[in-house]
Design a protein around this nucleic acid. Structure first.
Lengths: 280, 280
DNA sequence: TTGCTCCTCACGTCACGTGAGGTGGC
DNA sequence: TTGCTCCTCACGTCACGTGAGGTGGC
Protein backbone atom coordinates (compact mmCIF):
# COMPACT_ATOMS: atom_id res chain seq x y z
CA UNK A 1 0.00 0.00 0.00
CA UNK A 2 1.38 3.33 -0.99
CA UNK A 3 0.24 6.37 0.94
CA UNK A 4 0.27 9.37 -1.30
CA UNK A 5 0.41 12.49 0.81
CA UNK A 6 -0.37 15.85 -0.64
CA UNK A 7 2.41 18.17 0.43
CA UNK A 8 2.87 21.87 0.80
CA UNK A 9 5.82 24.18 1.31
CA UNK A 10 6.48 25.83 4.67
CA UNK A 11 5.18 29.10 3.21
CA UNK A 12 1.86 27.55 2.16
CA UNK A 13 1.59 25.72 5.48
CA UNK A 14 2.19 29.03 7.26
CA UNK A 15 -0.62 30.73 5.31
CA UNK A 16 -2.87 27.72 5.93
CA UNK A 17 -2.30 27.61 9.70
CA UNK A 18 -1.53 31.26 10.51
CA UNK A 19 1.65 30.11 12.25
CA UNK A 20 4.77 32.04 11.22
CA UNK A 21 7.56 30.32 9.32
CA UNK A 22 9.88 30.89 12.28
CA UNK A 23 7.38 29.27 14.59
CA UNK A 24 7.00 26.26 12.30
CA UNK A 25 10.77 25.83 12.15
CA UNK A 26 10.89 26.05 15.94
CA UNK A 27 8.18 23.41 16.31
CA UNK A 28 10.19 21.20 13.94
CA UNK A 29 13.37 21.75 15.95
CA UNK A 30 11.73 20.70 19.22
CA UNK A 31 9.91 17.81 17.55
CA UNK A 32 6.41 19.12 18.13
CA UNK A 33 5.34 19.30 14.48
CA UNK A 34 7.76 17.43 12.23
CA UNK A 35 7.29 17.88 8.46
CA UNK A 36 6.38 14.70 6.59
CA UNK A 37 9.48 15.14 4.47
CA UNK A 38 12.68 17.16 4.41
CA UNK A 39 14.70 17.39 1.20
CA UNK A 40 18.13 16.02 2.09
CA UNK A 41 19.79 18.27 -0.49
CA UNK A 42 18.22 21.61 0.26
CA UNK A 43 16.69 21.13 3.72
CA UNK A 44 13.34 22.27 2.33
CA UNK A 45 10.47 21.14 4.57
CA UNK A 46 7.29 19.58 3.16
CA UNK A 47 4.13 19.47 5.27
CA UNK A 48 1.22 17.11 4.62
CA UNK A 49 -2.39 18.29 4.52
CA UNK A 50 -3.22 15.88 7.37
CA UNK A 51 -0.88 17.95 9.57
CA UNK A 52 -3.22 20.93 9.32
CA UNK A 53 -5.52 19.50 12.00
CA UNK A 54 -2.57 18.93 14.35
CA UNK A 55 -1.35 22.48 13.77
CA UNK A 56 -4.81 23.83 14.61
CA UNK A 57 -4.79 21.98 17.93
CA UNK A 58 -1.27 23.20 18.72
CA UNK A 59 -2.26 26.77 17.97
CA UNK A 60 -5.27 26.67 20.28
CA UNK A 61 -3.35 25.06 23.11
CA UNK A 62 -0.63 27.72 22.74
CA UNK A 63 -3.34 30.38 22.85
CA UNK A 64 -4.22 28.90 26.23
CA UNK A 65 -0.60 29.28 27.36
CA UNK A 66 0.15 25.57 27.43
CA UNK A 67 3.93 24.89 27.29
CA UNK A 68 5.23 23.07 24.21
CA UNK A 69 6.29 20.07 26.29
CA UNK A 70 2.74 19.58 27.54
CA UNK A 71 1.28 20.03 24.08
CA UNK A 72 3.55 17.26 22.91
CA UNK A 73 2.12 15.06 25.69
CA UNK A 74 -1.45 15.94 24.64
CA UNK A 75 -0.71 15.00 21.03
CA UNK A 76 0.83 11.72 22.18
CA UNK A 77 -2.07 10.89 24.54
CA UNK A 78 -2.99 7.20 24.31
CA UNK A 79 -6.76 7.87 24.46
CA UNK A 80 -9.26 10.71 24.13
CA UNK A 81 -9.92 10.40 27.88
CA UNK A 82 -6.24 10.89 28.69
CA UNK A 83 -6.14 13.84 26.32
CA UNK A 84 -9.22 15.44 27.87
CA UNK A 85 -7.74 14.92 31.32
CA UNK A 86 -4.54 16.73 30.38
CA UNK A 87 -6.48 19.61 28.88
CA UNK A 88 -8.80 19.81 31.90
CA UNK A 89 -5.78 19.92 34.21
CA UNK A 90 -4.42 22.87 32.28
CA UNK A 91 -7.77 24.67 32.36
CA UNK A 92 -7.84 24.16 36.13
CA UNK A 93 -4.43 25.82 36.36
CA UNK A 94 -5.76 28.73 34.29
CA UNK A 95 -8.67 29.12 36.73
CA UNK A 96 -6.24 29.15 39.65
CA UNK A 97 -4.20 31.83 37.92
CA UNK A 98 -7.31 33.89 37.34
CA UNK A 99 -8.23 33.73 41.01
CA UNK A 100 -4.75 34.71 42.07
CA UNK A 101 -4.84 37.64 39.66
CA UNK A 102 -8.13 38.79 41.13
CA UNK A 103 -6.63 38.59 44.61
CA UNK A 104 -3.65 40.61 43.36
CA UNK A 105 -5.98 43.33 42.12
CA UNK A 106 -7.67 43.56 45.52
CA UNK A 107 -4.33 43.57 47.29
CA UNK A 108 -3.09 46.41 45.13
CA UNK A 109 -6.22 48.45 45.85
CA UNK A 110 -5.78 47.71 49.56
CA UNK A 111 -2.19 48.85 49.45
CA UNK A 112 -3.02 52.12 47.72
CA UNK A 113 -6.04 52.86 49.93
CA UNK A 114 -5.05 51.74 53.42
CA UNK A 115 -2.03 52.94 55.37
CA UNK A 116 0.65 50.51 56.51
CA UNK A 117 -0.07 48.56 59.70
CA UNK A 118 0.97 50.45 62.85
CA UNK A 119 4.07 49.18 64.62
CA UNK A 120 2.69 50.28 68.02
CA UNK A 121 1.31 46.75 68.11
CA UNK A 122 4.78 45.18 68.10
CA UNK A 123 5.41 43.18 71.26
CA UNK A 124 8.71 41.74 72.52
CA UNK A 125 8.31 38.21 73.77
CA UNK A 126 10.47 35.35 75.04
CA UNK A 127 8.99 31.96 74.19
CA UNK A 128 10.20 28.88 76.08
CA UNK A 129 11.14 25.58 74.56
CA UNK A 130 8.07 23.40 73.94
CA UNK A 131 7.47 19.79 73.05
CA UNK A 132 5.38 19.42 69.93
CA UNK A 133 4.23 17.26 67.07
CA UNK A 134 5.90 18.57 63.93
CA UNK A 135 6.05 18.21 60.14
CA UNK A 136 9.26 19.32 58.42
CA UNK A 137 9.95 19.63 54.70
CA UNK A 138 11.90 21.57 52.11
CA UNK A 139 9.42 23.39 49.91
CA UNK A 140 9.05 26.12 47.30
CA UNK A 141 7.60 29.35 48.65
CA UNK A 142 4.96 29.26 45.90
CA UNK A 143 3.57 26.01 47.36
CA UNK A 144 3.60 27.42 50.90
CA UNK A 145 -0.10 28.02 51.54
CA UNK A 146 -1.28 24.66 50.24
CA UNK A 147 1.50 22.80 52.00
CA UNK A 148 0.75 24.61 55.28
CA UNK A 149 -2.92 23.60 55.18
CA UNK A 150 -1.94 19.98 54.53
CA UNK A 151 0.59 19.95 57.37
CA UNK A 152 -1.82 21.57 59.84
CA UNK A 153 -4.53 19.09 58.89
CA UNK A 154 -2.20 16.15 59.42
CA UNK A 155 -0.93 17.54 62.75
CA UNK A 156 -4.39 18.15 64.23
CA UNK A 157 -5.68 14.79 62.95
CA UNK A 158 -2.74 12.91 64.42
CA UNK A 159 -2.83 14.67 67.79
CA UNK A 160 -6.60 14.16 68.06
CA UNK A 161 -6.34 10.49 67.09
CA UNK A 162 -3.76 9.98 69.82
CA UNK A 163 -6.07 11.65 72.38
CA UNK A 164 -3.56 14.41 73.12
CA UNK A 165 -4.51 18.00 73.88
CA UNK A 166 -2.75 20.84 72.04
CA UNK A 167 -0.88 23.01 74.56
CA UNK A 168 -1.08 26.18 72.48
CA UNK A 169 -1.59 27.43 68.93
CA UNK A 170 0.17 25.79 65.98
CA UNK A 171 3.22 27.52 64.63
CA UNK A 172 5.82 27.47 61.87
CA UNK A 173 9.59 27.91 61.69
CA UNK A 174 10.80 29.31 58.38
CA UNK A 175 14.43 29.04 57.31
CA UNK A 176 15.83 32.24 55.79
CA UNK A 177 16.13 30.56 52.37
CA UNK A 178 12.33 30.47 52.10
CA UNK A 179 12.48 34.26 51.78
CA UNK A 180 15.89 34.83 50.16
CA UNK A 181 15.66 31.97 47.60
CA UNK A 182 11.91 31.12 47.67
CA UNK A 183 12.99 27.59 48.51
CA UNK A 184 13.92 26.19 51.91
CA UNK A 185 13.08 24.27 55.04
CA UNK A 186 9.84 24.77 56.93
CA UNK A 187 8.68 23.13 60.16
CA UNK A 188 5.03 23.31 61.18
CA UNK A 189 4.39 22.29 64.78
CA UNK A 190 1.57 21.82 67.26
CA UNK A 191 2.62 22.02 70.94
CA UNK A 192 1.53 19.02 72.96
CA UNK A 193 3.68 18.27 75.98
CA UNK A 194 4.17 14.82 77.42
CA UNK A 195 6.09 13.48 80.40
CA UNK A 196 9.12 15.62 81.34
CA UNK A 197 8.69 18.11 78.52
CA UNK A 198 9.19 15.68 75.66
CA UNK A 199 6.39 15.23 73.20
CA UNK A 200 4.16 12.26 73.81
CA UNK A 201 3.17 12.07 70.15
CA UNK A 202 3.96 8.84 68.33
CA UNK A 203 5.30 9.20 64.76
CA UNK A 204 2.61 8.74 62.11
CA UNK A 205 3.13 9.62 58.45
CA UNK A 206 5.03 12.89 58.23
CA UNK A 207 4.30 13.78 61.87
CA UNK A 208 7.25 13.43 64.27
CA UNK A 209 7.82 14.46 67.90
CA UNK A 210 10.06 17.51 68.16
CA UNK A 211 11.46 19.97 70.70
CA UNK A 212 10.77 23.49 69.46
CA UNK A 213 13.61 25.65 70.81
CA UNK A 214 13.12 28.73 72.95
CA UNK A 215 13.41 32.09 71.19
CA UNK A 216 13.26 35.81 71.74
CA UNK A 217 10.99 37.47 69.22
CA UNK A 218 9.55 40.78 68.12
CA UNK A 219 5.94 39.78 67.49
CA UNK A 220 3.19 41.43 65.50
CA UNK A 221 -0.24 40.10 64.63
CA UNK A 222 -1.28 39.93 61.00
CA UNK A 223 -4.99 40.35 60.32
CA UNK A 224 -6.55 38.55 57.38
CA UNK A 225 -5.32 36.05 54.81
CA UNK A 226 -1.67 35.42 53.98
CA UNK A 227 -1.83 37.15 50.60
CA UNK A 228 -0.69 40.48 51.99
CA UNK A 229 1.28 39.24 54.97
CA UNK A 230 4.29 41.05 53.50
CA UNK A 231 2.86 44.33 54.79
CA UNK A 232 3.04 43.08 58.39
CA UNK A 233 6.51 41.66 57.69
CA UNK A 234 7.56 45.09 56.44
CA UNK A 235 6.30 46.94 59.48
CA UNK A 236 7.90 44.42 61.79
CA UNK A 237 11.24 44.51 59.93
CA UNK A 238 11.17 48.28 60.04
CA UNK A 239 10.59 48.23 63.82
CA UNK A 240 13.41 45.75 64.39
CA UNK A 241 15.77 47.77 62.20
CA UNK A 242 14.96 51.12 63.86
CA UNK A 243 15.52 49.65 67.33
CA UNK A 244 18.56 47.70 66.13
CA UNK A 245 17.48 44.56 67.94
CA UNK A 246 17.70 42.05 65.10
CA UNK A 247 19.50 38.77 65.65
CA UNK A 248 20.05 35.83 63.32
CA UNK A 249 17.62 32.96 63.34
CA UNK A 250 14.56 31.69 61.54
CA UNK A 251 11.31 33.61 61.38
CA UNK A 252 8.34 32.14 63.24
CA UNK A 253 4.63 32.31 62.67
CA UNK A 254 1.83 31.35 65.06
CA UNK A 255 -1.54 30.46 63.58
CA UNK A 256 -4.05 31.82 66.10
CA UNK A 257 -7.18 31.87 63.94
CA UNK A 258 -7.27 30.47 60.41
CA UNK A 259 -9.16 28.55 57.78
CA UNK A 260 -9.78 25.74 60.26
CA UNK A 261 -11.53 28.09 62.69
CA UNK A 262 -13.69 30.35 60.52
CA UNK A 263 -14.38 30.69 56.81
CA UNK A 264 -14.24 34.49 57.09
CA UNK A 265 -10.68 35.53 56.11
CA UNK A 266 -11.09 38.91 57.83
CA UNK A 267 -11.13 37.13 61.18
CA UNK A 268 -7.93 35.18 60.60
CA UNK A 269 -5.02 36.07 62.92
CA UNK A 270 -1.39 35.13 62.46
CA UNK A 271 1.44 36.23 64.72
CA UNK A 272 4.72 36.96 62.96
CA UNK A 273 7.82 36.51 65.13
CA UNK A 274 11.09 38.16 64.06
CA UNK A 275 14.23 37.08 65.99
CA UNK A 276 15.32 39.89 68.31
CA UNK A 277 17.14 40.37 71.60
CA UNK A 278 14.98 41.72 74.37
CA UNK A 279 17.58 43.06 76.81
CA UNK A 280 19.84 46.01 76.11
CA UNK B 1 19.04 69.05 57.90
CA UNK B 2 20.44 65.56 58.12
CA UNK B 3 18.21 62.72 57.06
CA UNK B 4 19.05 59.65 59.08
CA UNK B 5 17.80 56.59 57.28
CA UNK B 6 17.48 53.29 59.04
CA UNK B 7 19.11 50.70 56.84
CA UNK B 8 18.92 46.99 56.40
CA UNK B 9 20.97 44.37 54.57
CA UNK B 10 19.71 42.74 51.39
CA UNK B 11 18.93 39.62 53.41
CA UNK B 12 16.76 41.49 55.90
CA UNK B 13 15.09 43.42 53.09
CA UNK B 14 14.37 40.11 51.35
CA UNK B 15 12.72 38.71 54.51
CA UNK B 16 10.80 41.94 54.96
CA UNK B 17 9.44 42.08 51.39
CA UNK B 18 9.32 38.38 50.43
CA UNK B 19 11.33 39.22 47.31
CA UNK B 20 14.32 36.91 46.73
CA UNK B 21 17.86 38.28 46.97
CA UNK B 22 18.36 37.50 43.27
CA UNK B 23 15.23 39.46 42.41
CA UNK B 24 16.35 42.44 44.51
CA UNK B 25 19.75 42.45 42.77
CA UNK B 26 17.96 42.28 39.41
CA UNK B 27 15.73 45.23 40.34
CA UNK B 28 18.85 47.15 41.36
CA UNK B 29 20.57 46.31 38.06
CA UNK B 30 17.66 47.59 35.97
CA UNK B 31 17.22 50.63 38.22
CA UNK B 32 13.76 49.72 39.48
CA UNK B 33 14.62 49.57 43.18
CA UNK B 34 18.00 51.13 43.91
CA UNK B 35 19.41 50.63 47.42
CA UNK B 36 19.88 53.86 49.39
CA UNK B 37 23.57 53.03 49.74
CA UNK B 38 26.14 50.66 48.29
CA UNK B 39 29.44 50.13 50.13
CA UNK B 40 32.11 51.14 47.61
CA UNK B 41 34.58 48.63 49.12
CA UNK B 42 32.47 45.51 49.35
CA UNK B 43 29.51 46.24 47.06
CA UNK B 44 27.16 45.45 49.96
CA UNK B 45 23.72 46.93 49.37
CA UNK B 46 21.82 48.82 52.10
CA UNK B 47 18.07 49.33 51.80
CA UNK B 48 16.12 51.98 53.71
CA UNK B 49 12.94 51.23 55.63
CA UNK B 50 11.08 53.77 53.49
CA UNK B 51 11.78 51.50 50.47
CA UNK B 52 9.57 48.80 51.95
CA UNK B 53 6.42 50.53 50.68
CA UNK B 54 7.87 50.81 47.18
CA UNK B 55 8.83 47.14 47.21
CA UNK B 56 5.28 46.22 48.21
CA UNK B 57 3.87 48.12 45.25
CA UNK B 58 6.40 46.55 42.89
CA UNK B 59 5.53 43.07 44.12
CA UNK B 60 1.81 43.57 43.59
CA UNK B 61 2.26 45.02 40.12
CA UNK B 62 4.51 42.08 39.21
CA UNK B 63 1.82 39.73 40.53
CA UNK B 64 -0.44 41.37 37.97
CA UNK B 65 2.10 40.63 35.24
CA UNK B 66 3.11 44.24 34.66
CA UNK B 67 6.51 44.51 32.91
CA UNK B 68 9.35 46.08 34.90
CA UNK B 69 9.56 49.00 32.47
CA UNK B 70 5.93 49.92 33.10
CA UNK B 71 6.32 49.53 36.84
CA UNK B 72 9.15 52.03 36.67
CA UNK B 73 6.80 54.41 34.89
CA UNK B 74 4.12 53.92 37.57
CA UNK B 75 6.66 54.68 40.31
CA UNK B 76 7.75 57.80 38.45
CA UNK B 77 4.19 59.01 37.82
CA UNK B 78 3.89 62.76 38.36
CA UNK B 79 0.51 62.52 40.09
CA UNK B 80 -1.80 59.94 41.70
CA UNK B 81 -4.19 60.43 38.77
CA UNK B 82 -1.47 59.56 36.25
CA UNK B 83 -0.54 56.56 38.36
CA UNK B 84 -4.12 55.32 38.57
CA UNK B 85 -4.48 55.79 34.83
CA UNK B 86 -1.45 53.61 34.12
CA UNK B 87 -2.70 50.92 36.47
CA UNK B 88 -6.20 51.04 34.99
CA UNK B 89 -4.73 50.67 31.50
CA UNK B 90 -2.93 47.55 32.61
CA UNK B 91 -6.05 46.13 34.24
CA UNK B 92 -7.91 46.74 30.97
CA UNK B 93 -5.25 44.71 29.16
CA UNK B 94 -5.71 41.91 31.69
CA UNK B 95 -9.44 41.93 31.00
CA UNK B 96 -8.78 41.70 27.27
CA UNK B 97 -6.46 38.78 27.85
CA UNK B 98 -9.08 37.04 29.94
CA UNK B 99 -11.66 37.41 27.19
CA UNK B 100 -9.26 36.10 24.59
CA UNK B 101 -8.47 33.12 26.82
CA UNK B 102 -12.16 32.38 27.19
CA UNK B 103 -12.53 32.53 23.41
CA UNK B 104 -9.57 30.17 23.09
CA UNK B 105 -11.28 27.67 25.38
CA UNK B 106 -14.43 27.73 23.25
CA UNK B 107 -12.39 27.43 20.07
CA UNK B 108 -10.58 24.40 21.42
CA UNK B 109 -13.86 22.75 22.35
CA UNK B 110 -15.21 23.52 18.89
CA UNK B 111 -12.17 22.01 17.26
CA UNK B 112 -12.39 18.80 19.26
CA UNK B 113 -16.18 18.46 18.82
CA UNK B 114 -16.91 19.59 15.28
CA UNK B 115 -15.40 18.16 12.12
CA UNK B 116 -13.37 20.34 9.77
CA UNK B 117 -15.35 22.47 7.31
CA UNK B 118 -16.19 20.59 4.11
CA UNK B 119 -14.25 21.58 1.01
CA UNK B 120 -17.23 20.76 -1.25
CA UNK B 121 -18.07 24.43 -0.75
CA UNK B 122 -14.90 25.63 -2.47
CA UNK B 123 -15.66 27.65 -5.57
CA UNK B 124 -13.27 28.78 -8.31
CA UNK B 125 -13.85 32.37 -9.28
CA UNK B 126 -12.27 35.01 -11.51
CA UNK B 127 -12.75 38.51 -10.14
CA UNK B 128 -12.29 41.50 -12.45
CA UNK B 129 -10.36 44.65 -11.65
CA UNK B 130 -12.47 47.12 -9.68
CA UNK B 131 -12.13 50.74 -8.69
CA UNK B 132 -12.36 51.23 -4.93
CA UNK B 133 -11.72 53.39 -1.96
CA UNK B 134 -8.87 51.82 0.01
CA UNK B 135 -6.85 52.01 3.22
CA UNK B 136 -3.36 50.50 3.17
CA UNK B 137 -0.97 49.99 6.05
CA UNK B 138 1.77 47.75 7.39
CA UNK B 139 0.50 46.12 10.56
CA UNK B 140 1.15 43.36 13.08
CA UNK B 141 -1.12 40.35 12.70
CA UNK B 142 -2.06 40.63 16.38
CA UNK B 143 -3.61 44.06 15.70
CA UNK B 144 -5.48 42.79 12.66
CA UNK B 145 -9.05 42.62 13.95
CA UNK B 146 -9.04 46.03 15.58
CA UNK B 147 -7.29 47.64 12.64
CA UNK B 148 -9.75 46.04 10.21
CA UNK B 149 -12.77 47.44 12.07
CA UNK B 150 -11.21 50.89 12.07
CA UNK B 151 -10.39 50.76 8.36
CA UNK B 152 -13.87 49.49 7.42
CA UNK B 153 -15.46 52.22 9.52
CA UNK B 154 -13.39 54.91 7.86
CA UNK B 155 -14.08 53.53 4.37
CA UNK B 156 -17.86 53.34 4.80
CA UNK B 157 -17.96 56.77 6.48
CA UNK B 158 -15.94 58.38 3.70
CA UNK B 159 -17.87 56.77 0.87
CA UNK B 160 -21.19 57.69 2.46
CA UNK B 161 -20.08 61.27 3.10
CA UNK B 162 -19.13 61.61 -0.56
CA UNK B 163 -22.57 60.29 -1.62
CA UNK B 164 -21.07 57.31 -3.44
CA UNK B 165 -22.69 53.86 -3.54
CA UNK B 166 -20.59 50.77 -2.75
CA UNK B 167 -20.48 48.50 -5.83
CA UNK B 168 -19.97 45.31 -3.82
CA UNK B 169 -18.80 44.00 -0.45
CA UNK B 170 -15.66 45.31 1.20
CA UNK B 171 -12.53 43.22 0.91
CA UNK B 172 -8.95 42.89 2.04
CA UNK B 173 -5.65 42.06 0.35
CA UNK B 174 -3.14 40.41 2.67
CA UNK B 175 0.56 40.23 1.80
CA UNK B 176 2.15 36.84 2.52
CA UNK B 177 4.29 38.36 5.30
CA UNK B 178 1.14 38.85 7.40
CA UNK B 179 1.00 35.07 7.70
CA UNK B 180 4.67 34.08 7.45
CA UNK B 181 6.05 36.84 9.72
CA UNK B 182 2.88 38.10 11.47
CA UNK B 183 3.78 41.53 10.13
CA UNK B 184 3.09 42.93 6.68
CA UNK B 185 1.04 45.04 4.33
CA UNK B 186 -2.74 44.97 4.29
CA UNK B 187 -5.14 46.85 2.02
CA UNK B 188 -8.80 47.11 2.93
CA UNK B 189 -11.02 48.31 0.08
CA UNK B 190 -14.62 49.17 -0.70
CA UNK B 191 -15.53 48.98 -4.43
CA UNK B 192 -17.12 52.17 -5.71
CA UNK B 193 -16.65 52.75 -9.40
CA UNK B 194 -16.53 56.17 -10.96
CA UNK B 195 -16.16 57.41 -14.50
CA UNK B 196 -14.28 54.94 -16.78
CA UNK B 197 -13.52 52.44 -14.03
CA UNK B 198 -11.42 54.71 -11.85
CA UNK B 199 -12.61 55.40 -8.35
CA UNK B 200 -14.51 58.61 -7.88
CA UNK B 201 -13.54 58.79 -4.22
CA UNK B 202 -11.57 61.84 -3.08
CA UNK B 203 -8.71 61.21 -0.64
CA UNK B 204 -9.70 61.86 2.99
CA UNK B 205 -7.57 60.79 5.93
CA UNK B 206 -6.20 57.32 5.27
CA UNK B 207 -8.69 56.66 2.47
CA UNK B 208 -7.30 56.76 -1.07
CA UNK B 209 -8.70 55.82 -4.48
CA UNK B 210 -7.25 52.55 -5.75
CA UNK B 211 -7.56 50.04 -8.56
CA UNK B 212 -7.94 46.57 -7.09
CA UNK B 213 -6.39 44.17 -9.62
CA UNK B 214 -8.21 41.23 -11.15
CA UNK B 215 -7.48 37.80 -9.69
CA UNK B 216 -8.29 34.12 -10.01
CA UNK B 217 -9.20 32.65 -6.66
CA UNK B 218 -10.28 29.47 -4.93
CA UNK B 219 -12.97 30.84 -2.63
CA UNK B 220 -14.56 29.42 0.48
CA UNK B 221 -16.96 31.10 2.91
CA UNK B 222 -16.05 31.25 6.57
CA UNK B 223 -18.96 31.20 9.02
CA UNK B 224 -18.67 33.05 12.31
CA UNK B 225 -16.05 35.32 13.87
CA UNK B 226 -12.42 35.51 12.78
CA UNK B 227 -11.10 33.68 15.83
CA UNK B 228 -11.17 30.30 14.12
CA UNK B 229 -10.80 31.44 10.55
CA UNK B 230 -7.68 29.25 10.38
CA UNK B 231 -9.92 26.19 10.02
CA UNK B 232 -11.38 27.55 6.79
CA UNK B 233 -7.89 28.56 5.66
CA UNK B 234 -6.74 24.98 6.32
CA UNK B 235 -9.54 23.40 4.32
CA UNK B 236 -9.00 25.82 1.46
CA UNK B 237 -5.22 25.29 1.46
CA UNK B 238 -5.76 21.54 1.47
CA UNK B 239 -8.09 21.80 -1.52
CA UNK B 240 -5.67 23.98 -3.46
CA UNK B 241 -2.77 21.63 -2.66
CA UNK B 242 -4.66 18.46 -3.64
CA UNK B 243 -5.72 19.99 -6.96
CA UNK B 244 -2.29 21.53 -7.47
CA UNK B 245 -3.76 24.83 -8.59
CA UNK B 246 -1.90 27.21 -6.26
CA UNK B 247 -0.25 30.30 -7.71
CA UNK B 248 1.70 33.09 -6.01
CA UNK B 249 -0.11 36.19 -4.92
CA UNK B 250 -1.70 37.74 -1.87
CA UNK B 251 -4.66 36.18 -0.10
CA UNK B 252 -7.96 38.03 -0.28
CA UNK B 253 -10.91 38.25 2.04
CA UNK B 254 -14.39 39.59 1.31
CA UNK B 255 -16.47 40.78 4.23
CA UNK B 256 -20.04 39.80 3.30
CA UNK B 257 -21.68 40.00 6.73
CA UNK B 258 -19.86 41.29 9.81
CA UNK B 259 -19.99 43.28 12.99
CA UNK B 260 -21.40 46.23 11.06
CA UNK B 261 -24.39 44.19 9.88
CA UNK B 262 -25.45 42.10 12.88
CA UNK B 263 -24.28 41.69 16.47
CA UNK B 264 -24.71 37.90 16.24
CA UNK B 265 -21.27 36.45 15.35
CA UNK B 266 -22.85 33.20 14.13
CA UNK B 267 -24.32 35.09 11.21
CA UNK B 268 -21.06 36.67 10.08
CA UNK B 269 -19.79 35.55 6.67
CA UNK B 270 -16.33 36.08 5.26
CA UNK B 271 -15.11 34.76 1.93
CA UNK B 272 -11.49 33.62 1.85
CA UNK B 273 -9.82 33.80 -1.56
CA UNK B 274 -6.67 31.76 -2.22
CA UNK B 275 -4.77 32.57 -5.46
CA UNK B 276 -5.27 29.72 -7.95
CA UNK B 277 -5.38 29.21 -11.69
CA UNK B 278 -8.75 28.17 -13.03
CA UNK B 279 -7.81 26.64 -16.38
CA UNK B 280 -5.78 23.49 -16.76
C1' DT C 1 39.00 31.77 63.59
C1' DT C 2 34.84 29.80 61.75
C1' DG C 3 30.79 30.03 59.28
C1' DC C 4 27.67 32.94 57.31
C1' DT C 5 26.38 36.69 54.29
C1' DC C 6 27.15 38.96 50.42
C1' DC C 7 29.47 39.86 46.02
C1' DT C 8 30.19 39.39 40.74
C1' DC C 9 30.40 36.97 36.54
C1' DA C 10 28.49 33.71 33.25
C1' DC C 11 25.14 30.92 31.69
C1' DG C 12 20.30 28.74 31.54
C1' DT C 13 15.13 29.08 30.84
C1' DC C 14 11.00 29.59 27.45
C1' DA C 15 9.06 30.39 22.97
C1' DC C 16 9.98 32.29 19.74
C1' DG C 17 11.69 37.02 16.78
C1' DT C 18 15.44 39.31 14.28
C1' DG C 19 18.80 39.87 11.20
C1' DA C 20 22.96 38.08 8.38
C1' DG C 21 24.54 35.61 4.75
C1' DG C 22 23.80 32.22 1.50
C1' DT C 23 21.53 28.68 -1.81
C1' DG C 24 17.81 26.29 -4.48
C1' DG C 25 13.60 26.37 -7.60
C1' DC C 26 10.55 28.13 -11.15
C1' DT D 1 18.43 34.95 -15.73
C1' DT D 2 15.94 37.34 -12.15
C1' DG D 3 13.63 37.47 -8.00
C1' DC D 4 11.54 34.85 -4.66
C1' DT D 5 11.48 31.17 -1.32
C1' DC D 6 13.81 28.70 1.72
C1' DC D 7 17.87 27.44 4.46
C1' DT D 8 21.14 27.66 8.72
C1' DC D 9 23.63 29.92 12.18
C1' DA D 10 23.93 33.25 15.90
C1' DC D 11 22.09 36.34 18.85
C1' DG D 12 18.23 39.03 21.29
C1' DT D 13 14.08 39.21 24.43
C1' DC D 14 12.07 39.07 29.41
C1' DA D 15 12.48 38.36 34.31
C1' DC D 16 14.67 36.30 36.77
C1' DG D 17 17.05 31.32 38.62
C1' DT D 18 21.28 28.57 39.03
C1' DG D 19 25.63 27.56 40.11
C1' DA D 20 30.82 28.82 40.44
C1' DG D 21 34.22 31.01 42.76
C1' DG D 22 35.54 34.35 45.84
C1' DT D 23 35.58 38.03 49.72
C1' DG D 24 33.93 40.75 53.79
C1' DG D 25 31.79 41.07 58.56
C1' DC D 26 30.67 39.58 63.20
Amino acid sequence: MVLVTTCMSIGDFSRATHLTVKTLRHYHEVGLLTPVAVDPQTGYRRYGTEQLATAQVVRRLRDLGMPLEEIRAVLAAPSPEARNGQIAAHLARLTDQLESTQRAVEQLRDLLVHAAPDDAAVELRAVPQVAAAAVTDVIDAADGTGWLQGALGELYATVTAQRLTPAGPAGGIYADEIFTDHHGQVTIFLPCGGVSGSSAVRPVGRVLPAAIPAAELAVMTHHGPATDVDRTYGTLASYVARHAIGVPGPIREYYLIGQRDTPDPDQWRTEIGWPAFLTR
